[in-house]
Amino acid sequence: MENLLKGKIALVTGGTKGIGKAIADKLARDGAQVVVTARTKPDEEIAHYFIAGDLTKPQTAQFIAEEILEKFGKVDIVINNAGANTSPGGGYSTLSDEDWSNEIELNLMSAVRVNKALIPSLISQNEGVIINISTGAAVQPLWKMTMSYSASKAALNAYTKALASELGSQGVRVNAVSPGMVKTPLMESFIADIAEKGGISFDAAFKSIKNEIGDLPLSRMGEPEEVASLVSFLVSPEAKYITGANYRIDGGAMAIL
């Protein structure tokens, strides 16, 4: 895959840590010029072009798009990775209107707005790839932990399929990637919070989540780099006949095809 993306401009939102950073680094190794966004610039050095922006604010996507097009003249690959489960667990009664709104803004509307701002550029080239990073929880929601998050990502999945249908004839491919439990700072913090609230160990909390899921044949969390490898393939010319798909990368967590 080395240099397979040479000459391509790629945007990775939420690209400074976790899965987003792994994707950004992988696309750069494949030859792409990578742009990453986050709300604030991290203290450590970033190897990619950085744009600060809070994508829960409606105007941010347009600002980011304008800077990319001014700086690089085009964009070829859009990875909508920004997202998180920010709401409290406990089920419907613990979730406020604000919790629901926050999840939808971060996990759905951030991608919708970024895509809307950059799709005209992709169409003008008659070529481009959009990957929306979703989650296995969108099709296997855990009411105690992910109700509003799962709902927002399920909406992202439906949007992905619809967008792929709309843009396919114009040369733009759109797919979703749905990680399961991946070893990121956010996931580890999520598990640690469950452990603290339950008065149990981290390993016991991880096991409790596995039990809620029902099964995890590979018996471990995934690595961010494993997700990045899948994304790298999907944005490459090797995947040029793939669009409108949702690829789960979850260690076999769901007992369905």
Score class of each variant (00 low, 15 high):
74 K>M: 04
94 T>L: 09
38 A>G: 07
24 A>Y: 09
185 P>G: 07
121 S>G: 04
162 A>C: 13
55 L>M: 10
87 S>L: 00
233 F>A: 02
84 A>H: 03
3 N>P: 01
183 K>Y: 08
210 K>Y: 13
21 K>H: 05
128 G>C: 10
213 I>T: 11
87 S>G: 09
251 G>N: 12
228 A>M: 01
183 K>I: 06
231 V>E: 04
201 S>I: 02
175 N>W: 07
126 N>F: 11
47 A>E: 15
169 S>G: 03
128 G>H: 01
105 E>A: 15
98 E>M: 00
152 S>C: 05
3 N>Q: 13
142 L>D: 14
70 E>W: 06
157 N>E: 15
143 W>G: 14
24 A>G: 06
245 A>T: 14
86 T>Y: 00
61 A>K: 08
115 N>W: 03
9 I>R: 08
96 S>T: 15
27 L>E: 05
207 K>T: 15
246 N>Y: 03
29 R>T: 07
161 K>R: 15
250 D>M: 04
143 W>F: 14
5 L>T: 05
241 Y>A: 11
172 V>T: 10
190 F>V: 06
209 I>Q: 14
66 E>I: 01
113 R>H: 06
83 G>N: 02
166 E>K: 14
165 S>L: 13
165 S>W: 02
111 A>W: 05
234 L>V: 05
133 I>K: 13
236 S>L: 13
107 N>A: 07
97 D>T: 07
178 S>R: 05
